[in-house]
Computed example of a mutant assay.
Amino acid sequence: MKVYLNGNIVDGASAQISIFDHGFMYGLGVFETFRIYEGHPFLLDDHFQRLQKSLVQLGIEWRYEKKKICAILEALLYANDLQEAYVRWNVSAGVGPLGLHTGDYEEPTTIVYMKPIPSYMPAEKQAVLLQTRRNSPEGKQRLKSHHYMNNILGKRELGQNIGDEGIFLTKEGYIAEGIVSNVFWVKNDILYTPSLETGILDGITRQFVFTLAKKEKINVVEGCFFEDALLEADEMFITNSIQEIVKITKYKEKSFSFNDGITEKLQKQFNDWKTKLWSKGELG
């Protein structure tokens, strides 16, 4: 794997960062994962606007320069001989003193990882309730940050079956999110999903689903819901930027059928736009 590291494309096996990088020492870093379809980085603007806002909260000085970012992505595609790719764009605080730093970070570390899309990703999954509860965000809202212990504990509880996705509840018992996904369900032609008040990540694909739902005149309700809502649902699906929109066929004793319902309608719309859009805002 060829990666981008602070201005250079290098072999991933030989890439190095300082042991004093505060992204490594204190978890001060955020990242975005997204897909490139036929050379097009889908919803690039949305991903990097979120990244920029997150870095401001952490006091890390970094600016979204679209032309420069596209040039880096094109160079990495060439170096890795890819047209379709999984990308992780990572910005950490950079080198700092030993101890907690209260000032801004002016020289962050930027690493861009790129690899092929897995040859097989399930189009359908089963959802499994986790006993591990979703932790609360470190600040006012959840960032896509280096703080992944809760996710790792959930994944270890779930196991390695790629056909399963673990579902977190909050400590209050509200439906939160998947280990690496946002959760949606349908009841009586209304689309439901947990509110950001539950402490979940505001996923880019989650936001895009809202845009598609509005375009299709589908009513969306966000709120704090207990687990019974899933057991009473007509359809259920999860979303993330790599797996897209994935049907959940079973949750506990409840099986879901789709039959040209809302999930399949949203999947079709997603497929129609994934090689074209830079931002959900282009759909109005």
Rank of each mutant, 00 (worst) to 15 (best):
V56N: 12
E74V: 11
W273A: 12
Q207R: 13
L231I: 06
Q57T: 06
I218S: 00
E107L: 07
R133I: 08
E177W: 10
H101D: 15
Y120V: 11
F258I: 08
G27Y: 03
N219D: 10
T193Y: 06
G163A: 14
F237I: 06
I152A: 07
K2D: 03
P122K: 13
Q141G: 01
E106P: 07
E197V: 09
E172I: 10
Y37T: 04
Q267R: 11
I218V: 11
E165D: 07
Q207S: 10
A15S: 14
G154H: 14
K274Y: 02
N80W: 01
D202K: 01
N90R: 04
Q160K: 13
I245H: 06
S241H: 00
P41I: 12
S257H: 07
W273R: 05
Q131K: 09
Y148V: 14
Y64P: 06
K268T: 10
A85E: 04
D104G: 14
F20R: 08
Y4W: 15
F42I: 11
L44E: 05
L100Y: 14
Q269I: 05
E197G: 00
N151A: 09
G27C: 11
V220K: 06
P97N: 05
Q49V: 11
F225L: 05
F34P: 01
R88N: 14
D21M: 11
G139L: 12
N188W: 08
K265L: 01
E157N: 03
L129W: 02
I162S: 04
G173Y: 08
D272Y: 08
G27W: 00
V112M: 05
V87A: 12
L277C: 05
P137Y: 02
F34G: 03
R88Y: 05
R88G: 10
E172M: 12
T198E: 01
H22Q: 15
L98P: 04
D260Q: 02
Y148I: 14
P108S: 13
G199Q: 07
Y26W: 02
I36P: 12
L277P: 00
E38D: 15
R35A: 08
G159P: 01
N271P: 11
E172R: 05
K254Y: 05
